[in-house]
Design a protein around this nucleic acid. Structure first.
Length: 214
DNA sequence: ATCCCGAGGG
DNA sequence: CCCTCTGGAT
């Protein structure tokens, strides 16, 4: 685990991320808050490319919780059985859709407490919805952000909650809104788990991590 | 700590 | 073969 970088080092790093990609966006495909929520639930331990492959035909037919209940659990499984953990995910998506219809008039609530009370929705998924659908500066710490944060020193912590706090406490405020996607994209394409592409890294000179990639 | 669990990459 | 992918519930 690297040492936590200071405010000025983080300002330099995020300035580069912003200059390279001023408006970073989720690579998950969705058409409204509800389909975003479903896509994020499906994305657990799965690649977004794999999730998009499944949701493209699904969201062509289903864009509301009521339509999802019509489709049903077995119908949903036909669309998502190529995604890992599909049985748990199908059960959770149907159950949360029923709650949205019965308790929220078919809308997606915009509070963390209400989101996390939904089956299959934990802190990370709730934070993604708050950030992407509602524009709040919520920091969803996933596998990429946890790895990149600790490897580079951008956000150091022993668990995801500690890394979330490290981002909130250390990243200059003006960068917090987009920090989530900058870190995800950096982790996905450059600072990869297995074979990081350090020679192609924007912040190589500011990073303590050394990886011999031949 | 363990289970869920398919696809893609190396 | 093994590891990884925008985790959550028990």
């Amino acid at each position: 685990m690297a040492q936590q970088l200071d405010y000025h080092q983080l300002r330099a790093i995020f300035t580069r991320f912003r200059d390279a990609n001023p408006e970073p966006r989720s690579e998950l495909e969705y058409v409204n808050a509800y389909t975003l929520l479903v896509a994020v639930v499906l994305s657990a331990q799965a690649t977004d490319a794999g999730v998009n492959r499944a949701t493209r035909p699904l969201f062509a037919r289903v864009t509301t919780p009521a339509q999802m209940l019509e489709l049903g659990e077995e119908g949903l499984i036909e669309y998502i059985k190529t995604i890992g953990l599909f049985r748990n995910k199908a059960k959770n998506v149907i159950a949360l859709s029923r709650i949205l219809v019965e308790q929220y008039g078919g809308e997606v609530p915009d509070s963390r407490a209400a989101l996390q009370a939904l089956p299959g929705v934990g802190r990370k998924t709730a934070n993604v919805v708050l950030n992407v659908a509602f524009g709040y500066p919520a920091q969803a710490v996933d596998t990429h952000i946890f790895r990149v944060g600790n490897r580079t020193g951008i956000a150091v912590g022993k668990d995801v909650l500690a890394v979330e706090r490290a981002i909130e406490d250390n990243v200059p405020v003006e960068f917090q809104r987009h920090a989530h996607h900058w870190l995800i994209l950096h982790g996905r394409y450059i600072c990869k788990a297995r074979k990081p592409r350090c020679p192609d890294c924007l912040i190589r000179d500011l990073c303590p991590y050394e990886e011999k990639t031949e």
